[in-house]
Structure formats: C-alpha cells, structure tokens
C-alpha cells in the first residue's frame, strides 16, 4: 500500500491499455481501471481517481460516481487482508452473528474497521453464493466455508502470517 505515489505506474497503465483495446470508447473501461489500480495499491485514493479520470478523458466526478457506487472499490485505505463476511439469510440461520462477534473480539474491529497493524479490514457482504456451505467468508481471494470459531482462528492466523494474498 503506497499512498505517496500519485501518478499511475507503468504496470497499471499497460494493464489499462490492454483493456482499452477491447473498449469502444475510453470511459468504457472505468470499472476495470479502478480494479487494476486497486489490485496494485489496495485502494483507490482521490489522486488516483484524478489520474485515472484524466487518462480515460472523463471528469473526476463521473469516475468518482462509479467508484463510490461499488462497495468493493475501496475509497479509503484497507488492511492487507479484506474479510468479506457474509451476513445474508442462510449464513444468519447458521449462526453468522455469533461468528462475527468472535471476529470482532479476536481482531478488535467491527464492520468497516481496520486493525491497528493494518492486517485486516472487516466488510460485510450480502451473499457469496455458497449458501449450502454457510456460514462463509472470503479473506483476500479465497473462500472459506462451514465456518466455526476454531476455523476462523486458524484462517486469520494463516492470513496474518502469509500477508497479502495475490
């Protein structure tokens, strides 16, 4: 996570250029460009919004309206691992509320917060499409099913050691 770099990196630009090859007009790749920058920096800062908007020849307002619309484009810094914790109906029936409290206690954070060591951010999501294995959550890019307090402890310990998943 590097907030000081304002201009888009060569890797980011070439990834955006690749998307642009398939797009009918520049602003069509807005969402992809946001995802690319987020994958490199963890989140999308105000200055990144300006840089991307400039590159795609749209106004910062237009791009920001897209960026802020999507919950999973982060407009504030997040931890190395983002926990997407499902609180939808199946997971709720299977006791996710208790598990969420367990996470709160273990990490010392509630919804929307980031741990002091910048390791974890907790974000609720409405469904991860794995209701048959509820309760579920995602940490980084991996889905974890049939959660229990014990399995959550193990998952969080592993993630803390491994650092950011790519």
């Amino acid at each position: 996570m590097n907030n000081s770099v304002n201009s888009l990196s060569t890797e980011e630009l070439s990834a955006i250029d690749e998307e642009l090859e398939h797009a009918p007009y520049r602003s069509a790749v807005a969402i992809d460009a946001l995802k690319i920058v987020q994958s490199h920096r963890g989140w999308v800062s105000d200055s990144s919004i300006k840089e991307i908007a400039n590159y795609l020849e749209m106004s910062s307002e237009e791009l920001d309206s897209i960026a802020t619309f999507y919950n999973l484009i982060f407009r504030r810094p997040v931890g190395e691992n983002v926990i997407l914790f499902c609180d939808s109906v199946s997971c709720w029936i299977r006791g996710c509320a208790k598990l969420e409290k367990h996470i709160n206690k273990t990490l010392g954070i509630t919804r929307g917060q980031t741990t002091e060591d910048d390791k974890f951010t907790l974000v609720p999501v409405p469904c991860l499409g794995a209701c048959d294995k509820a309760p579920v959550m995602m940490v980084g890019d991996s889905l974890h099913e049939n959660l229990t307090e014990e399995s959550i402890n193990r998952i969080l310990e592993d993630a803390a050691v491994k650092g950011k998943e790519r």
Partner: peptide
C-alpha cells in the same frame, strides 16, 4: 456540466463534486 455527480448508493447517495 461535468463536475456534479451522484456519488455512492442506497442511503449514502450524495450529490456533489469530486472535491
């Protein structure tokens, strides 16, 4: 105009500028 937009969604919706 291009510098006023609807930001965010559901009950966070905000009408304003980027800054």
């Amino acid at each position: 105009g291009s510098d006023l937009s609807a930001m965010a969604s559901h009950d966070h919706v905000y009408f304003g500028r980027h800054e």
